[in-house]
């Protein structure tokens, strides 16, 4: 099957007064139509940077290299007009921390209708409004709330409006950056159920970003774990979560205990040391200063992503089958 999205050797470098910050350092992956990829990793490892780079949404002056093929076309070299169309109809994003991104003085229905009218994906205003109400219904917001202003909705409802908005022009790919992190458990479950339903019903492909591995395993077929701007482990999500082969993935999985697991009772599990500074990465494996398994050889060279088990890959010299 041809990939819907194919990211090849993507790098993103920020420029700051302190010098260059290589936030994404060579990431490659493919996503099939209807597939879902979960992207995990701790704060600052480059997840949002990568998500924004895929849709060329980073501000000017930031160096991006590599290829982002959406179907046959490279997003990174597309003409601006085409790019605008692709951003709603090809792939759409739900931004991190965007609960306040809704326009406070515009009814939610009008905020969803706007891109539909702009991109002419429905014949007229009436059809656009009907579609907006449909979309709100699909994310579990009843028609009688469509005329509400954002402040009349709860946080979870606003988050669902943002998802409906991203789906306005029926994109093939949805990128959701921490869409449930600010929500309580019950609302998080509601939002995840909505995404799951859309995926089953419309073959929507998804990239889902969060640092909570258990959420990703729940939503996605495949999982990629990032550390310091690179993918350090990937594979089928159940497998990565239950049998992680990279020591960093193991630490991340242990950080969210399974309720009922006696070993973690009264025994929280963490990782020593501080997250890496992307402007000054350690030599060798960037994880070695914090790695409980590190040996001398780990300081020599940065390990490539290689098979670590059936269908699983890891960037660790000790994780070889």
């Amino acid at each position: 099957m041809t990939a819907l999205l194919s990211v090849r050797d993507l790098t993103v470098t920020y420029r700051t007064s302190q010098g260059e910050v290589p936030a994404v350092r060579g990431v490659s992956f493919e996503l099939e139509p209807g597939g879902s990829l979960g992207l995990a990793g701790e704060s600052g490892c480059g997840k949002s940077t990568m998500a924004n780079a895929i849709l060329r949404l980073l501000p000017a002056g930031i160096t991006t290299t590599g290829e982002v093929l959406l179907g046959e076309e490279d997003v990174l070299t597309m003409k601006p007009g085409r790019l605008r169309a692709v951003r709603w109809t090809g792939a759409a994003i739900v931004f991190q921390g965007a609960l306040h991104a809704l326009n406070p003085v515009q009814r939610v229905i009008d905020q969803i209708t706007e891109p539909i009218i702009l991109h002419k994906t429905e014949p007229d205003k009436k059809a656009a409004e009907k579609r907006a109400v449909d979309l709100l219904g699909q994310v579990g917001i009843p028609a009688n709330r469509a005329e509400d202003y954002p402040h009349q909705l709860s946080g979870g409802q606003r988050q669902r409006v943002l998802i409906a908005m991203a789906l306005a022009c029926d994109p093939d790919l949805l990128i959701a950056d921490e869409p449930t992190t600010a929500l309580d458990l019950m609302v998080q479950a509601q939002v995840l159920a909505v995404l799951e339903k859309l995926r089953a019903e419309r073959q929507l492909s998804m990239i889902f970003i969060t640092h909570d591995l258990s959420v990703l395993t729940y939503v996605c077929d495949r999982l990629a774990v990032m550390y310091a701007g690179r993918i350090v482990e990937r594979g089928p999500s159940d497998q990565v979560f239950e049998r992680p082969t990279h020591p960093y993935t193991r630490a991340l999985a242990a950080a969210f205990p399974t309720i009922g697991d006696r070993e973690s009772r009264m025994n929280p599990s963490g990782l020593k040391g501080d997250p890496p500074d992307p402007a000054a990465l350690p030599a060798g494996c960037p994880f070695h200063p914090r790695c409980p398994d590190a040996i001398d050889r780990c300081r020599d060279a940065e390990p490539p992503l290689l098979p670590s088990g059936p269908a699983q890959e890891a960037a660790c010299i000790l994780a070889r089958p």
């Binding site: 640092h211 991340l252 950080a255 969210f256 929280p268 599990s269 963490g270 990782l271």
Partner: peptide
């Protein structure tokens, strides 16, 4: 961060066990 979370929780538990401190903690995180 997920990786730092465990360390902070361990620290709190340790203070409780060593000093007799009481902690009332509000959380969504079971």
């Amino acid at each position: 961060d997920a990786s730092i979370r465990g360390e902070i929780l361990g620290l709190l538990r340790n203070l409780v066990d060593t000093t007799g401190l009481a902690v009332l903690v509000v959380t969504h995180d079971l």
